[in-house]
Each structure stands twice: as structure tokens, then as C-alpha cells.
Design a protein around this nucleic acid. Sequence first.
DNA 1: AATGAATGAGCCTTCATTCAT
DNA 2: AATGAATGAAGGCTCATTCAT
Lengths: 213, 213, 213, 213
Amino acid sequence: VGRARQTLETARRKPRQARANETVQAILEGAAQVLEAGGLAAFTTNAVALRAGVSIGTLYQYFADKQALLHAIAERELEAVLGRVARALRGEEGPTLEGRVRAMVRAMANAFGGRQRARKAVMQALLAEGAGGALLAPIAAFLAQAHARQGEFEDHAFPVLSREQLFVLSRSLMGAMRAAVLEEQPFLKSRAFEDELVRLALGYLASLPPLPR
Amino acid sequence: VGRARQTLETARRKPRQARANETVQAILEGAAQVLEAGGLAAFTTNAVALRAGVSIGTLYQYFADKQALLHAIAERELEAVLGRVARALRGEEGPTLEGRVRAMVRAMANAFGGRQRARKAVMQALLAEGAGGALLAPIAAFLAQAHARQGEFEDHAFPVLSREQLFVLSRSLMGAMRAAVLEEQPFLKSRAFEDELVRLALGYLASLPPLPR
Amino acid sequence: VGRARQTLETARRKPRQARANETVQAILEGAAQVLEAGGLAAFTTNAVALRAGVSIGTLYQYFADKQALLHAIAERELEAVLGRVARALRGEEGPTLEGRVRAMVRAMANAFGGRQRARKAVMQALLAEGAGGALLAPIAAFLAQAHARQGEFEDHAFPVLSREQLFVLSRSLMGAMRAAVLEEQPFLKSRAFEDELVRLALGYLASLPPLPR
Amino acid sequence: VGRARQTLETARRKPRQARANETVQAILEGAAQVLEAGGLAAFTTNAVALRAGVSIGTLYQYFADKQALLHAIAERELEAVLGRVARALRGEEGPTLEGRVRAMVRAMANAFGGRQRARKAVMQALLAEGAGGALLAPIAAFLAQAHARQGEFEDHAFPVLSREQLFVLSRSLMGAMRAAVLEEQPFLKSRAFEDELVRLALGYLASLPPLPR
DNA sequence: AATGAATGAGCCTTCATTCAT
DNA sequence: AATGAATGAAGGCTCATTCAT
């Protein structure tokens, strides 16, 4: 976003920055392709540069190191997903709790533009350095605030969730989805699968004690 | 030489295997220690050999390559866990559905003898090569057969689960646990966390339609 | 284009040269600063351009390569020193032999405007390519001519020096000073150090046989 | 020397160490050759390994990094010289002050087995990291203690030297010799040159005030 | 005259694996 | 059965230099 924004703001003033932006995009795209094609093992800076059609030196002009590149690609994809997830949770695609959860599930299932291996690799890499939490932060945040925004829900009382409950709810959903990705389950984007995920979330919420601390 | 050795083979087999077994155990233990101490990044074959007190050559006498070592260590730990998980599911530590689920959750949470970093590293490594599914096989198997063994449950009607339902139930549980490990959550072995996992499973089961196909 | 430009050449030369000169000075100053701040290791053409506030392309418009830049900076500083050294040797700051030697030593010790690290780095770089001798040429020249200019000295008979004697006298003085710079000795500019250098030179001269060949 | 000794001591016990020792020597020799042939610029770890006839991996098995290799080569050569310098200063090759100084000068002039470029390169490298002082430590130490050992000298009263005097005496000698090396002066090992260096040292000592503080 | 994006050769270093002893 | 010295492919990264604009 930072860079994309810059392009818009200063495109006129510094035509050179336009080229730079193209290069950055090419690198990110190349990185995603390498990841998709060969997973984390094939993800070398040289391979990315090659695929992106730039020199290795150019790559390092824009990304401090390999990790930075990984973060950038994660961010790029995440940005796209999170926008849709946020809209879903805000109820813009259906006001009921179920509607929101369903929309969110759908958005997550379609993350990374369908590049499952790349998605998998990025996940692994981020988890490996302990930055995996960031992927879920927005979802956790929504759930954490849901109680306070009780009024928004037409059909459901939303309990305050404890730390552990929050964790279990978000991670179990993600876990199921992640497993479907990693195991390349054919039903990943099916309605039946989506139904079960929604049921899992709603069933869990329904089973919570009426008056949690 | 080959023949002469063969002649002695039977006589020496026992003691040889004993020594060999010790060596293998030493290597596996060393591997677990290296993993625990430095994570996957420190997990080099040389480091393992050093920690195990054997030469690198010896290590390769027992393990074809690094992956084999990793699989062996995973297997060793898995074996220990799976035994307890199976007993839990069989109802040997409490006949109710909740009791079984709870015992299973507990067994899983205590896997790897408490060596969380090693557990995390092994998980990562196995996931990286797509072998992660193996971790869930026994649980999936149990759930798949639960309906058929309806009689075993004193307190609960156990529905037949569809493919998607089976998947969601097992993977969401594992996913939550996995995330707790990978994110090094402090509450991994807490009672509160255990409660929520049990609730997740039971809540999901309870939310299933009365008469599934 | 080439011709058209030539037509204008004379008219614009002055202002152009003025700007160009500013740029060159900025680059040289930036180079000195980089050298002083980070030594030879930090002395990259990009770093110099950045510090000088010009683009890397501009730097290369004025300096063929990194070495040329280094030579230029050495020359710039040398020019300043040599002027003072020459005046010292000419007796303009004290007519006696001791006075001249002392003034020379002082001038050398204050070279590079006190930027010791930069001085050290330049020395290293020049020595590395065997151009170190240039630093001493003027001094050697003076000594070589001193006998012929016997009349200039009020207090001392100045012997003709053999090739080896000339060499030893000049290089030992420089060597001591150089070492003080490279080892970053705190006493570099102290009076005590200066005294000893003067003593070294005078003591050596006094020990020469009365009638050298 | 340390390693050579080990070979003799443990040659029987650990034949493998003999091979290792050979390798180390080969690497050091290769390093010296590379340095001699192409100076510091050509001194890459790959070049050294190639010249030494070992793989790059082997090189790194014995030397932590490039610097360590440089230090080792410096140490190896230094050890050889310092032994002779020490003997000279102890008076074992002539009891008079002049005899000692002369023997020392000669030992230094013959340092590095005549490999001047290698010597130069090593000097530069060590100076570049501020470790240059070590090269002179033993000489400085001798001079520093000479006064206390007054009785050893049959022909000379040896004054106590101040820090600055010690520095000037040792560095000027080294400086002249160094310059002769770097400028590849033909008289480097001539008697005439040696005479002048001795004269420089003795002349300086003679010019010191009779009763220094 | 100036810019700065792009280049790519080449450097240092790691580590899985082999094989002679 | 064990040893450990040796190997070398491969990776991350730097930086002097070029050239289209």
C-alpha cells in the first residue's frame, strides 16, 4: 500500500518512480510464481529475480533481504483478503451472524487468488519466524469487539470471548481451511465445506455458557 | 569377507543390534535436543551427530538422509502419543464422549514430552514436505468409525459424519492445537484451553442436524 | 549535437565550470566524510554520492572510477600539506635546520585537517596500489637538494646524502608518522612526539660521517 | 609451530590428524602464494582453496573465516621472524648494542622468506583492522626493557625510553624497511642499507638527553 | 549536466553427503 | 561399525559501473 500510494501521489512528479513500481510489482509477482511452482524450497532470491525478469541486484534494491520479500508478498496478498474479510464481518454482505461468518469463510477460502501452494509457503515461512499471528490479527480483533457491538447483530447475542476462546475459534477455522489447502482437498471451495465451517463457528458460539465472565 | 562375516552373523546379531539400537537412540535424542535448543535452523546433521556424541559418518549409517532422521524423530514421538490417544478414544480413561475427547486432547497437548520447540520444528518440517496429514490419520480413523461403534457410548448418539464433517472436526481440533504450538502460546497445556477444545468438538457435534444423510 | 554544443562552449564555460567545480568539491567533501565516518570499508561510490548529495551518475561524470576518486581526495589534501611543508623547508617559519624540520613535521602531523580516519584510509588505499611513494616525493626532493643549498642554513653543515641515506631519513620519518596515524596513537599531534621526530632526523644527520662520499 | 609439534607428538595416535595438518599447511602455503601473486585484491577464499588444492569447504573446516586465515598466515610468518629477532636482541649474534641492532635489522629484512608482496599484503590487512601493533610488540618490549638490563651491554649506556621515544624508534625503523619493501627498492638487503638503519637507531639513541626522566 | 534504476560478476559462507581408513 | 576429513553445489548478498531518460 505504501508503495502503491506513492505511485498515485507522485506519479507525475517522478516518472522514474513509475518504473520502480513496475519493477517491485514484477518482483512480487515473480516471487508468488516461484512459490507457487516450487514451494518454499525453490524460493531463492536468484530464482525470484530470474522469474521476475530483473537482475538480482535490482531485487535487493527494493527488498532488504529474503525475509523482507516474503513479508511483502504476504502483505500484498493479505491486504486483498483482509479487505474482503473486514467487509464480511462488518455485515456488508449479509447482516446476520451466520451471513457474516459465511462471507468471511468464503473470503478466506479464496485468498491468494487461488494460488494454494504460494499461500501455503507464505504461511509456513511466516509461522517459522513467529510472525504467523499477524495473519489472524484482524479476525481476532473483530471477534474481540463483537460483544461490544452487540447492537449490530439482528439475530444473535454475542458473548464476550476469553483469550482461549478467541484463540480456539479463530485457529480452528483457519486450521481446517489450512489443512484443506495443504492436503489439496477437492472440496475446498465447495458449499458443503463452507457449510461445515460456518456450523463449526456457530456451534461453538452456541455452546458457550450463557454468562461468561 | 562377506561370507566369513555371514558365518558369524547369527552369533553376533544380538549384541550388535543392541549397540546399534543404543546408537540410534542416542542420535534421535540428540536430534530432539538440537531441535529443542535451536529450532529447525540449527538442525544440521553435523550438529545432531555432535550432540549425539557420534560421528557424522555413523549418523549416515542409520539414516539415509536428513529427512529420514526427521521422520524417525516424528515417528518416535508420534508412537508415544498415539498410544495414549487410542486409549483415550477407546474410552479407557473415561467412558463418556466428553471424557474421551478430553483425554485425547490432553494426550495431544502433552506430546513430545513437553519439548515444544522440537515439536514445532518437526511439525514445520513435515508440513513443508506435505507429510503433515500423517499426524491426523489415527484421529480421523477413530471418528470415521465412531458411528459404527455407537454402542460404546453410554451418553451420546454419535452421528454418521460426512466426509466434510469428518474433515472439519478433526482438522479444526488439530489446527487449534497446532497454532498453539507454533505460536508458542503459554496456555497450551492449561485446563482452560483444554476445555475450549472439548467444547469445540462437542459443540460441533451437537449442532449437526438430527438425521444426517 | 556535438558541434552545436561546441558553438556554445565558450560562452557557457565559465558558469558551467563553476557549477561543475562545486559539484566536484561536494563529492570530494562527501568522500572525506564517508572515509572519516566509516573508514575504507564504508567507502562505496554510492555512499559517497549520497553523502555528497549528488546522484551516482553525476559522480561518475567527474571521476572515472573509485580509484580516481581516491586519488583526487589524496591529491586535494596533499596539495594543502605540501604547500606548508615546502614553506617550512624553505625556512620561512624558522631559519635553523631544526626549525625547518620541526615546522615540516608539524605540517605533516596536521595533514588532512585533522581527519585521522580519512587520512588513514587514504593511506591504506594508496599503499594498496603501490602509489604510496608519491606522498614522499617532495620531501625526498628537498633533502636531495639540501646540500646544494648549503648557504641557506645558518647553523648547520648539510652533508650530501647517499641514495640509501636519503631513503632512510625520509622513510623513517614518514614511517613513524604513518604508524602513529594508522595505529591511531593519541600523541600524534603532541609536542613530545614532534620533539622525538625532530630528534630522530637531527640525530641521524649528526651521526653521518664527516666526509661522506 | 604448535601444529607441527602436535604432529610429532600424536602422529601415532591419530593418523588422521596428520592429514589434517598437511591440509592446514597446504592452505597456509596456498594463501601465501595467492597473496604473493596478486596481493590483497586477489586474496579470496576460493582462490586460496584452489591454489592450495583443497575444496572451499575444507578451508572453512580449519579457518573460521577469511580474517582467521589472514591472522594464521601472519602468525606463521611472524613466528619465524620473531624468533630470530629475539635472538638478535638477546645478543646471541653479537653482544654489542650495534651488533644486536644489526642482527635484528637483518632478521627483519629477511622476513617472510623473501615474499615481499605477501608480506606487504599481510601488513596491510592487519593494519586495516588495527591489529598492526602486534607486529612490533616484541621489539618494543625489548627496547622497553633494555634499560633495566643495562648490565648486558658492554659498550653502551641504554637510556630509559619514553612512550613516544619507543614508538619513534621502532616505527621509524620499521617504516624505512616497509617502504623499501613496498617500493621494491633494489638495495633492500644490501649492506649499505643495513648500515644506515643501524646508524639511524644508534644516532637516535645517542642524541637522547643524558638523564631522561 | 544530472539522475537513479538496473546490472551481474563475484564474494563469503553453509551444510548435506561421501568415502578412505 | 565407526570415524571425520573432504567435497562442492548452492545460496544470500554487495557494489562498481552503465545508460536511458
